[in-house]
Design a protein around this nucleic acid. Structure first.
Lengths: 134, 134
DNA sequence: GATAACACTTGCTATTTGCAAGTTATCTTC
DNA sequence: GAAGATAACTTGCAAATAGCAAGTGTTATC
């Protein structure tokens, strides 16, 4: 997916230039809400992402500064990914996306989790940041 | 863009099935934040969307219940679009996207507007809802 | 050294996007 | 009423991306 030169500089257009596709935010989701950290784990997430697409998305998110890649010191084959602070700052948006979908679509989000998100967004996000060592 | 059968029922995956592409949220943006309401106006927004892509996106958002289409009573050629309540409920997510992009990317969002969003999200969203007659 | 695992890469097909001309219905002007 | 303009798409083709599955190179294990 070659990114054309920037369109407007509108924040939403700018954001969509970075993650306006079907797969990127799924990677961010896994890093944010689950303990998946490797290429193989993202592939195994059950979303049906193709290997070339995942590789390209990881690289793009890395270049955008949303995720960071390191090599597992205990296994030189394994690349580990984590969210950067810039990536963590996507939490409010992802949270609102969860809340929206839970209200308007059929999802398997645990009702208690959604309720916790809606009850106190700031607290929920603070909890995520703590988990991620921020 | 043929939508494959649903992947996981995760809220984020579900949402991305609906608007996980480069163009859909730009339509929602225009309806939410500007006074663009017609096919021609969306095309003229300066984002470089192709005509066939716009037509398909409008239809898809209509089918998803996010926008609604009516014919302008004063001009039978003109289709007018508006956000449904379901579409309006995307406001918090769009707002967080704006805030994120303003913080991490170079955008032309007016600083005062971004500050108003960050200062009191609920109030800003209430203002949007009032403008949209909710 | 043989085998396996990890992270991609590659070659090909299928699908979508992008471009620009085309079509149809409605409106405006004369 | 006819001619011209406009609005919303549609269409045909080229370009780009997604998807599939086999392949490759490095590292780890036995």
């Amino acid at each position: 997916m070659t990114r054309k030169e920037a369109r407007s500089r509108c924040p939403i257009a700018t954001s969509l230039d970075i993650f306006g596709d079907r797969w990127s935010l799924l990677v961010v989701r896994d890093l944010m809400f689950t303990d998946r950290r490797t290429y193989g784990e993202f592939l195994a997430a059950g979303e049906g992402m193709a290997t070339n697409v995942l590789a390209q998305r990881l690289e793009h998110l890395d270049c955008a500064g949303i995720i960071a890649r390191t090599i597992d010191p205990t296994d030189g084959r394994r690349a580990m990914y984590r969210l950067t602070p810039k990536g963590m700052d996507l939490a409010p948006m992802l949270l609102e996306m969860v809340v929206w979908a839970a209200a308007h679509e059929e999802t398997d989000a645990p009702p208690k989790l959604v309720a916790a998100m809606k009850r106190d967004r700031k607290r929920f996000i603070a909890g995520l940041r703590k988990v991620h060592g921020e």
